[in-house]
Structure formats: structure tokens, C-alpha cells
Design a protein around this nucleic acid. Structure first.
Length: 112
DNA sequence: AACTTGACGGTCA
DNA sequence: ATGACCGCCAAGT
């Protein structure tokens, strides 16, 4: 039991709460979990997300520009894009064109 | 133990 | 608009 497992679990929980067809950013998740956490940690958590027994829709998490920076971590080079397009995202040059429409902010939507 | 890397983000020139 | 830099913190080398 490592101390960051707790943080990881919360990241996965938030990611799993992202509605289909919506996306969010690493930074948004980091801020939702606490200012002491950096967006890099969220990225690191996502890196380990494949170890989770429960499915984590990692394709719904992109960077602040709506760019699919993590696509190389999927099974194929365009898997992430395909998944997002299936959910209604419009992607051009690895970037979500309608990012502002699809953006889902945990701070606003999950506000506790 | 020191240095580099990274699925990031904000600021400043 | 573009690019350099810095803060962030865990892992890998």
C-alpha cells in the first residue's frame, strides 16, 4: 500500500464519472483533488490506469488545449481518436475542435 | 545520491 | 501566436 494509491483511486473515480461524449483535462482533475497535486501526477496516475481492474475511460482526458497527448499510450496510434469520435468529438490534427462544448469540469459538475 | 523524464499548466518575452 | 522557462512530484536510470 503506497501512499499515492489513495490519490490514484480518486483520479480514476473522477475519470470514471466523466459522462460519455464529454472530456476533461489533467489540470482540471488535479485542481479538483487539491491544489497540492500537480497535473503531472494525474498524468502519472493515468499511466497506471491500465492496471486497474475496472475500466477507466482514459480517452476522455486530454490536455488543456484539447490535444490528444496521450494517444501513444493506447493500443494503437489512433485508438484514442476513434473512441472520442465515436462519442461525438470532432478531431483534427490530434486536437478536439469542439473542446469547449465537450469540456466537463469536475469542479463545476461534481462540486461537493 | 544525482540527474533526467513525463498522458501538464501557467506565465512572460 | 509561438516558444522558453519554471513549478510540480514520482519513477526510472
Amino acid at each position: 500500500m503506497k501512499k499515492h494509491d489513495d490519490f490514484f483511486s480518486r483520479v480514476y473515480e473522477v475519470v470514471r464519472s466523466i459522462p460519455p461524449g464529454r472530456v476533461t483535462s489533467y489540470g482540471a482533475i488535479a485542481r479538483f483533488l487539491g491544489s497540492s497535486q500537480s497535473s503531472r501526477m494525474v498524468g502519472w496516475a493515468m499511466n497506471q490506469s491500465h492496471n486497474q481492474s475496472e475500466f477507466v475511460p482514459a480517452h476522455r482526458v486530454v490536455n488543456r488545449n484539447g490535444v490528444l497527448t496521450g494517444k501513444h499510450h493506447f493500443e494503437g496510434p489512433d485508438v484514442m481518436q476513434q473512441l472520442l469520435e465515436n462519442e461525438g468529438a470532432i478531431i483534427e490534427d490530434d486536437q478536439i475542435i469542439n473542446f469547449s462544448e465537450l469540456f466537463w469540469d469536475p469542479m463545476q459538475e461534481l462540486s461537493l
